[in-house]
Amino acid sequence: MSDLSIWQHAPLDAIIDHILPRYHETHRRQLDEILPLADKVARVHAETFPPQLLPLVLHMDGELRSHMMKEERMLFPMIKQGLGRGAAMPINVMMHEHDDHDTVIHQLIELTDNFTPPAAACGSWQRLYAQLQELVGDLRDHIELENEILFARTLNA
């Protein structure tokens, strides 16, 4: 969990301007590294690699990229225009999608034994799990900042 207190009274524009590079751009870079690595490890270790993991990561990639695009093209401009409660419907949709992301996070944790590679895992497998763990940590912080600060304050404006 991150320290959200620094954002409690920040202008909503500043929060959005922080989220875009810190989380949206970061997640895209993370996924761009994770996807080919997951594909490689799944192919090389087909007998021992969790068969559901690559499809789950691919699903997460598609859902997260779509989610961020909706925020960037629709919701964040609405918030920056000061629509406040007028943004309630898209905020509710985004929060529902955050719940879906959380479900995927729990599935990732379960499938990877809390991001613990097997004892004999190669370097690529170890790197994949470390990168997935970093993505999940960042995504949890991202969701918390949006739900607890940005969206809550927008709806109370």
Rank of each mutant, 00 (worst) to 15 (best):
T112A: 06
Q81T: 02
D13T: 14
I34W: 03
M74P: 00
D99I: 03
I143D: 07
A10P: 00
D141M: 10
A88W: 03
V44E: 14
P90I: 12
S66Q: 11
Q8I: 05
E63W: 10
D102N: 06
Q52E: 14
M1C: 06
H96I: 04
V57E: 02
I105Q: 02
N147R: 12
D100V: 13
S5R: 04
T116C: 09
L54I: 06
Q81D: 07
K70Q: 08
R73C: 11
Y23C: 09
L132Q: 01
G82C: 11
A38N: 01
L12F: 05
D99C: 04
H27S: 10
L31Q: 04
E71V: 00
N92M: 13
A119G: 06
H101N: 08
E110M: 08
Q8C: 02
L145R: 13
S5N: 01
M68R: 00
L53T: 04
M1Y: 06
D39N: 12
I91L: 10
I15Q: 04
D102V: 08
R28N: 10
L83G: 04
L56G: 04
L56A: 13
L4W: 11
M69C: 10
N114C: 07
H98T: 10
A87S: 15
A120D: 15
D32I: 00
E71H: 01
H24F: 07
R28D: 11
N156L: 10
A14H: 11
C122F: 06
A120M: 11
P55H: 06
D13A: 15
L145N: 14
G62E: 08
M89R: 00
H18V: 07
L111N: 09
G84C: 11
S2Y: 05
H98K: 03
L128W: 02
L4T: 14
A120H: 13
E97T: 00
G84I: 09
G137D: 11
V93E: 10
E47A: 14
L132D: 01
A42T: 05
R22V: 12
Q131W: 05
P77I: 13
S66R: 07
E148L: 14
I34N: 02
R22T: 13
D3M: 14
P50C: 09
R65C: 01
R28A: 12
A119K: 10
E146Q: 14
H67Q: 14
Q8R: 05
M78R: 00
Y129S: 03
V44I: 13
I34S: 02
E71A: 01
Q8D: 06
W125T: 02
P36I: 12
